[in-house]
Design a binder for these strands. Structure first.
Lengths: 257, 257
DNA sequence: CGGTACATTGAAGGGGCTCAATCCACGTGG
DNA sequence: CCACGTGGATTGAGCCCCTTCAATGTACCG
């Protein structure tokens, strides 16, 4: 396989290495699916609602958001995409994309044509299974956010969100043990959590006053993980449960037709 | 292929026939994946949070819910499964299932082992692509619910929910043009929409008072589709956008390795 | 130095919640 | 046939969380 931009696939590889039992060789196969890294400037769409697509994308660098804007201007952000995340599931699989994905920062993406994706299932079923699992993670994050917004208070939501970011960034090597950089405005966080920016400001302040977190500019430090986790009902959710089921892997080479 | 319980796969087939370009033969292949229909009594789990699974399930008859209960008893229902829906994505793809799925009514399910699923991608890529698309629909419904709960008022949510049920039931032949049977308590609806049962009661009453719907027992009739759709910002969301992208289909037989 | 974007804070209002009572349909056992 | 219990729907009163509107502060940048 060609040498390719090796460091760029590291976020995806790190994530899968931590959560699946794929071998280094298999991770390389997955990484080699990607073609032609392409820069995307801040505030440019990677995917635009209503358009047709024939490929998935991988976010190699930067941060992006999936969102929908209602007719009266209210916006709900569905998810934040971090380096190593697949972009385009499920939006791209529909006749016309169901929502937009926009780069929040300068970003780099790489595309994976559907045809290439499907060939993988025949060529390497174990890696194909991992793709399934990656999509499961996307769906599961929607579900977790649903629980968040549907049944948790504003304070719990903000606490949960900070912990989610910490874990996700840590897996891809972009966070220290207890701190990370969060280049998000409070309005953005509000649109993610179904709150107003004003209220996010108040709740962040409350978390600081309670000694649970420290925020200096964009730098966030969790000063009391236990307290924050208890507040957000966090342990069960993310910490250990996002591991791929071994049952997904085919036991041996698939039998002929 | 064996004759099998032909009418039982009809809900899934109807849905796919309406939203994809699969042929009747391909629909049969998809239907033949299922094995051993199994009855599940009311209030019994089909999938239990924390357990391991090696298969997906298809709901052939009845209604089921996916949900999570927080430590203090608050419950969020993630989704309602109707006949023809796949169950187990994404829950089953993780090391231990992320949430439970319980039958609300007496139900019939059928299992599809992962191995069987994966063989399909090699044997029949077009049908394999449809499986991908089915999972995309699950994820998209989570996203739609997220937008609902995050950025819509209680009245809009209830209106949106009734329209969603109407469309979903109509596709599988369980609703007339404008009416359907809804065997759901208001507490259930509340747990779906992130509201209390008391408030659901009030908002349903308001919809009735405004002449938008008529409710007699479990029978729901939409008396003003236009008005209800406008209230719920509905058109764009579900009506025509849940069609499978043709780009997902491989252009020809996959080339050999 | 003025302009823009973002965070912060206060005051007031409202949407949805909590608590509680009532009603109704239904099933069960006397 | 009726008394009783149960689960669900309805309605009212009061409260509180979050929103709205607005003003102020602050960093950054031309």
């Amino acid at each position: 396989m060609p040498p390719g931009p090796e460091p760029r696939i590291s976020a995806l590889s790190q994530k899968l290495a931590a959560r699946t039992s794929l071998s280094a060789a298999e991770l390389d196969i997955l990484g080699s699916l990607q073609a032609e890294p392409r820069p995307v400037a801040t505030n440019r769409d990677i995917i635009t609602e209503g358009y047709k697509y024939g490929a998935l994308f991988v976010l190699l660098e930067g941060i992006a958001i999936r969102y929908r804007v209602l007719h009266d201007g209210r916006r709900q952000i569905l998810n934040i995409a971090l380096p190593g995340d697949y972009i385009g599931f499920p939006a791209c699989f529909f006749d016309t994309a169901l929502y937009s994905i926009t780069a929040l920062t300068d970003a780099v993406v790489s595309s994976i044509p559907f045809a290439r994706l499907f060939r993988l299932f025949a060529d390497n079923p174990r890696v194909g299974a991992a793709i399934f699992w990656i999509f499961s993670c996307e769906a599961a994050m929607y579900a977790e956010r649903l629980i968040d917004i549907g049944r948790r208070s504003a304070l719990e939501r903000v606490a949960h969100f900070l912990l989610e970011l910490l874990i996700r960034l840590r897996v891809i090597g972009l966070a220290d043990e207890l701190s990370f950089r969060m280049p998000l405005t409070q309005e953005l966080i509000g649109d993610i959590l179904g709150l107003t920016s004003v209220h996010v400001s108040r709740k962040l302040r409350q978390l600081r006053a309670d000694g649970l977190v420290v925020i200096e500019g964009q730098q966030v430090t969790i000063s009391d993980v236990e307290g924050l986790s208890a507040l957000a009902d966090f342990e069960r959710t993310y910490l250990n449960h996002f591991r791929m089921s071994e049952a997904l892997f085919p036991a041996a080479a698939p039998p002929p037709i």
